[in-house]
């Protein structure tokens, strides 16, 4: 295990034993940006406020249930899995609101044709399965590498590559069905 993982394990152990806020805040400080990005990768662009709500929920859950962490995986893997699952639940509960998936939050100062292409691509992204959409966002939006995404989601790099491949394939078919050419 890396030293970062060791430090997490130590912090969790101390926090479980002594319930000191300072230890919990140190854990939050170390992981809050990643938790936020995982949530945002599921919820999609334009939903930073929702992703922040999810991140808050995740850390409140961890604060109250950290004893449930059994140490069978890295703390970060356990934490990001909670974040991913919470974000998926949140996205499903906001289904009606997600009709706006088709509207990208890009500046509309480009050519109308570019805006239409962006809208089509955003709509195709919105139709992807959650895991594929999440890895596309983490990879192309946040610039994470395949090994980084694999570590974050607690899966093998090959699995991430397969999800990316399938996502690109589905997007290509979706765009072709919409008659969009780039």
């Amino acid at each position: 295990m890396s030293s970062a993982a060791d430090e997490d394990t130590d912090l969790v152990a101390v926090f479980v034993a002594e319930r000191r806020s300072a230890d919990f805040e140190r854990l939050v400080e170390r992981h809050r940006d990643s938790v936020f990005r995982v949530a945002l990768s599921v919820l999609g662009p334009g939903r930073a406020r929702y992703a922040e709500d999810v991140a808050q929920d995740v850390f409140v859950h961890v604060y109250r249930n950290v004893a449930a962490f059994e140490g069978r995986s890295r703390f970060s893997t356990w934490l990001y899995r909670i974040a991913y699952n919470r974000a998926v639940d949140y996205r499903r509960s906001l289904r009606a609101d997600l009709e706006s998936d088709a509207v990208p939050d890009v500046a509309d100062d480009g050519a109308p044709a570019d805006l239409l292409k962006s809208r089509a691509l955003a709509a195709c992204l919105g139709r992807l399965p959650e895991t594929q959409r999440s890895v596309v966002h983490l990879h192309y939006w946040f610039g994470h590498t395949v090994p980084e995404i694999a570590t974050t989601l607690g899966v093998q790099p090959g699995t991430v590559k397969a999800w990316l491949f399938r996502a690109r394939h589905s997007i290509a078919r979706c765009l072709a069905a919409k008659g969009v050419r780039w």
């Binding site: 922040e52 808050q56 890009v106 596309v136």
Partner: peptide
Amino acid sequence: IHDDLSRHFANRERPQLSADFAVNLRNRV
């Protein structure tokens, strides 16, 4: 599609957590 996606997300804002995230979380816990 790889290039299309790269171009699509290239200029997209990468949001950050709000400044009062830690304070709000502290109040909630």
